[in-house]
Simulated assay, not measured.
Amino acid sequence: MDTNYTPLIQQNLAVLYENLPDNLVRILPAKQDGDRFIFPAFGKICTLSPEGVFLGKEMLHDARGIILSLYALHAADEPADVTVFKAFKEFENTMPYAGAFATHTEQVLVPHAGAIKARLTTIKTLLNGGNAPAGLGGDFSFVVNPVPKIFLCYLIYEADEEFPAAVTCLYSANAANFLPIDALADVGEYTSRAIIDLVAGL
């Protein structure tokens, strides 16, 4: 069903396909099948085509379609920098989005801390993740890769007698080179939603 996002997604795709970069396959990176570009995103297979953005067989009409079409438009010829992770607020121009980021990316996971720990291996596998770098903190932590060149590191603090559970989400150091900052905030939100979906019903 079309939404207010649909024309924006189509506009992004029209701009992309009007002047496709010769090296788009390499810099996304993706596989190419005719005019389609295929890569993993949010734990599923993303297909970009002139007709739309798909996750699996679902055509996207939400912010994920915006994120993924913008990611292709902003494809940068550099690797992700996972030597350092930084807080969302450390990127430039994040203040207008900081409150929503804390609510929809971090706090939304707090009630699921125990379930996340129980399904940590599944989360890391399905979201193309792995172990977090040592020394970042948290009672447990992990890295996921929801969009090819954007990595998120989640630090989970479990509740104890003195403090409630808490969640911190960090980004790979150059994540803002691949998306506008509002879309980068949305990556956090939709990654956290994907994590909640993976632990639902546990």
Rank of each mutant, 00 (worst) to 15 (best):
A118R: 12
L28D: 00
Y190S: 01
F37S: 00
I9Y: 02
F54K: 04
P21Y: 09
N93S: 13
E78L: 15
C46F: 11
G99A: 14
F91Y: 15
F42K: 15
I67S: 00
H74W: 00
G56A: 07
G201F: 12
G130Q: 09
P40C: 08
V108F: 13
N131W: 13
G99L: 00
R26T: 02
K86M: 12
R193N: 13
A76R: 15
V143T: 12
N19L: 07
E106P: 13
A30M: 03
A159Y: 08
E78G: 06
Y97M: 05
R26K: 10
R119V: 03
Q32H: 00
A165P: 02
E158D: 03
F151H: 14
C153T: 15
F163I: 09
K44H: 09
V82Y: 02
I9G: 00
Y71W: 04
F163Y: 15
R193C: 12
D35S: 15
G135V: 07
T83F: 05
F101Y: 15
R119D: 09
H112S: 12
E162D: 11
L20G: 10
K149L: 06
Y5V: 07
G130P: 00
E92G: 14
D182W: 09
Q11C: 08
P79D: 14
D2R: 05
G114W: 00
I66M: 14
V15Q: 11
A87Q: 14
Q107Y: 04
T121P: 01
T121G: 05
C46S: 11
V167K: 05
L68S: 13
P133S: 07
F101T: 03
E189A: 11
P29R: 09
P111A: 06
I116S: 03
I181E: 02
L24W: 04
F142G: 00
R36I: 02
N23H: 08
F163W: 13
R64V: 04
V108D: 02
E58T: 13
E78Y: 10
R119L: 03
G137A: 07
A41Y: 08
L16T: 06
K86D: 11
N131L: 13
I27D: 03
F37Y: 14
Y190P: 00
V84W: 01
S192P: 10
L8H: 02
A183Y: 01
P50D: 09
I181N: 07
C169W: 05
V147K: 04
C153R: 08
D139K: 10
G137L: 07
